[in-house]
Design a protein around this nucleic acid. Sequence first.
DNA 1: TATCCACAGGAAATCAGGGTGT
DNA 2: ACACCCTGATTTCCTGTGGATA
Length: 439
Amino acid sequence: MTNKDNKDMYSFNIDKFYQNYLTGPKLFKKREALEPTFIPDELPHRDSEIEKIAGITACALKGDVPPNFLCYGMTGTGKTATVRYISQKLAQHCSNNPPWWVYINCTVVSTPYRILAHIYNTIIGKEKIPATGLPKDIILKKLLGLLDQLIKNSVCFLVLDEIDILIEKNGGNEILYNLTRLNENLDFCRTSVIGISNKLKFMEYLDARVTSNLEEEEPIVFHPYDANQLADILKQRSEIAFNEGVIDNGVVKLCAGLAAKEHGDARKALQLLRKAGELAEKNQNKKIMESHVIKAQKDIDKDHIVEYILSMPLQAQLTLTAIYLLSKFAKEHVITSGDIYEVHSEFSNKIPGLKQLTRRRISDYINELTLSGLISANTRSLGHYGRTKIIKLDIEVGLVQRVLSQIKKIHNYKLLDYKPIVLQTDKVKLKNIVFRRLI
DNA sequence: TATCCACAGGAAATCAGGGTGT
DNA sequence: ACACCCTGATTTCCTGTGGATA
């Protein structure tokens, strides 16, 4: 460690900071209004979607079975919000026996077993079904019994958010098949499945029998918001979220514009505005300015990367570490998947108890990192020297360095201090990666 | 032009770790 | 204690392949 590594050391007076913060200007009135989970009284620019869904679900008011249907649209196009909005409205117009709603976020609740358990536990209101252990068919039977017993003569909506995640795993078709035809085994209760997906083509991976069950109605497509619509949404929310007059002219427009560039993502727009507000408050500014938005934009991108890397499993983090080391020290060379494997293998000698992975597994990790946008990979043929993937780090080296050094094992075993030495054994490729401890 | 490297990446099997009811 | 369940991570086995080189 040299002095210049400590350049961002400075003295920070936390007491003073809190004091100033408390006496400084108060911008937020109700911060939750900018959260993605917040459902406002009115949903601007989603009239046609609301109308369609209302039409499909209205028969629940009279106790009939609403058909299963799907909602498509990119992230931040209001799919989940609209469905939740409808559920609130439906309840308002249903004095007796209002429908039940079970929300299942398939990112979190991602296996057939857990979906069944989640539905059961949500309805009964406690953790009655254990997180693991029982056979699925037993739980399905239990669930059917519970539905008939507790939700007599009413409807239960099962909302499967991010339903596409389910199909990618095996068993996804089976659980969807079961869920979409629960009614055949129910006497008193009626269920209806609402699938929410941000991938349009996920139906292709679906079994034909599930498709027909799930597409009893035309899928409802949520189109991205344009900049003006985003501005309307932001205006509406900011009136709830902020005190009067704290937003500078142009801030809303800027947020809307930036988010519109990213496929009209309302979530992003709201996040920008919130972050900008937080920055302004932290700096004790009286107003949120455009400069705060610009800064917020940068911070959000960084936060995403940091959060993502820290949430990865250790082996994935080590794969990234290998790529980091290679791109830091072997600048003049290209990085291949074989190199990454070699370097990663070295790690398993350095960290006690760490399993050495196979090439196959590393290949999967490389693909995951590529999908996440942290790296990019191009398969290239090197003729007699085989075919491989050329990997490139897509984010700033310094940032990767900082994040990786936060990871305990990587830090404790000083992996970032190792240096892969690349010897060129032939003119085409780099090979024979040897590790040497740096002093 | 056939060859052959160094992988890519699909499918199925296996393992370990969390559980269950009897 | 025993037989069995569910899941996620990984291994095993495998077939496929672009294009420089022989």
